[in-house]
Design a protein around this nucleic acid. Structure first.
Lengths: 224, 224
DNA sequence: TAGATTGTTAATCGATTAACAATC
DNA sequence: TAGATTGTTAATCGATTAACAATC
């Protein structure tokens, strides 16, 4: 496998993976890059190129065998590898994720929840063991936790992230409004702040609106 | 303003915007592109280029005035524009978002929740008015809803998205596992499926691990 | 075989980085 | 003024798209 796969390509492959999972349940056996492209809103070129990052898969001239391609991506990107994760911050969002059923199907297991509020830890209803935040270093090492969700207030986010990383966490999905950074290239952070995402969408809409206004002005100018 | 701003640049500007909001509260008045880059994990070049997409801001040679830059981004990207949003799917994630306090600070107002389960609508505790899913076309038009969160099961996602778009929604934040597509370039969709994000992180970690294994093999090869 | 479709190289496109003149 | 820092053009880098030969 080519190691220098690009980030966008890697993301597309993970999306493809979940699409193939669905398709394999539908009974369909083979699929062409053109069909996949249509379902994806990308191009057949891109899909073939992405797949080829993972090395030869064969089937040239006859489309991809869905189950074979699925297993190939699974195997090359090690998506089947089971890893353990924790949730830090058990407010509304955090506790919703804590009891998210879909983790079971994926290779991921949530093995711990953390919160700084001891009363909350005492009253929370969950099957997952929960701990006070100060036990992060101990528990993360003990349970060999590699991934974490961060759902704490902005002011606490970077500090908690630093502690998680120090304890050995390699990947963080950050729902808090703080933009986390880490200069260790082996730690991967995905910032997904809802308000920020809405701001991006709102800006896209505003730019579209502006384009319409501009083209109307242009039209007037040409017709006077 | 240059209309052809790139998507990555637009996202960075929205991030910068929320960073500037924090900074303006800290009492600091001026900041250089180099300082911003450090906080961001990007380069000073990129930051200056991004800012210049929005047109002249002045202050050449003396850093950026935090409040002025904040207001400038706000104004040019119309982030201050108040828009209305709805949440479709009031399960754990959806209802957590429904009562997310931070919306109040942003220009966004959640004006409706939707779910197909009538019993749930009857018992849910919230100040936001809730409606059955089949009322989407009516309510979206009536309340002029432009943005939506989608937190429904995968099998329902594309159908609901189509209905939202038909009724006039221009931006969707999709928490469901389905990868939504829409060929209308004026509709903006952000897919943020948690399992998929974890898969991407997991793949990144696996590739890093593979790199280490490979470099060890290389080392052995060179020393035999 | 003929048609369809992949694999892979080449060409284009776009974004980031570098450099430096203009400016405070 | 001198030092610092932006604004903007040019150079590099990387990703996507196109093209076509290889393959089923």
């Amino acid at each position: 496998m080519d190691m220098n796969i690009s980030k966008p390509a890697l993301i597309r492959l993970c999306n493809l993976y979940s699409l193939l999972e669905e398709l394999s349940l539908s009974g369909k056996e083979t699929i062409s890059s053109a069909e996949l492209a249509k379902m994806f809103g990308s191009s057949a070129h891109t899909i073939r190129k992405d797949i080829n990052f993972l090395g030869e898969i064969g089937n040239s001239g006859a489309g991809y065998k869905i189950k074979k391609l699925y297993a190939h991506i699974d195997n090359e990107l090690r998506l089947n590898k089971s890893r353990t994760a924790c949730i830090v911050g058990l407010g509304r969002i955090g506790s919703a994720i804590l009891s998210y059923e879909r983790f079971a199907e994926s290779g991921l297991t949530i093995v711990a929840g953390f919160d700084s509020d001891i009363n909350l830890l005492d009253t929370i209803q969950t099957d997952v063991p929960v701990f006070p935040t100060y036990e992060i270093p101990e528990i993360v090492k003990q349970k060999n936790i590699e991934l974490s969700v961060l759902a704490v207030p902005a002011h606490a986010a970077q500090d908690i992230a630093d502690r998680l990383i120090l304890a050995g966490v390699k990947g963080i999905v950050n729902f808090s409004p703080a933009i986390l950074t880490c200069n260790d290239s082996r730690v991967h952070i995905k910032n997904m702040d809802l308000i920020n995402e809405f701001n991006v969408l709102s800006a896209c809409i505003s730019l579209d609106e502006q384009k319409i206004v501009d083209s109307m002005k242009q039209f007037e100018l040409e017709n006077t």
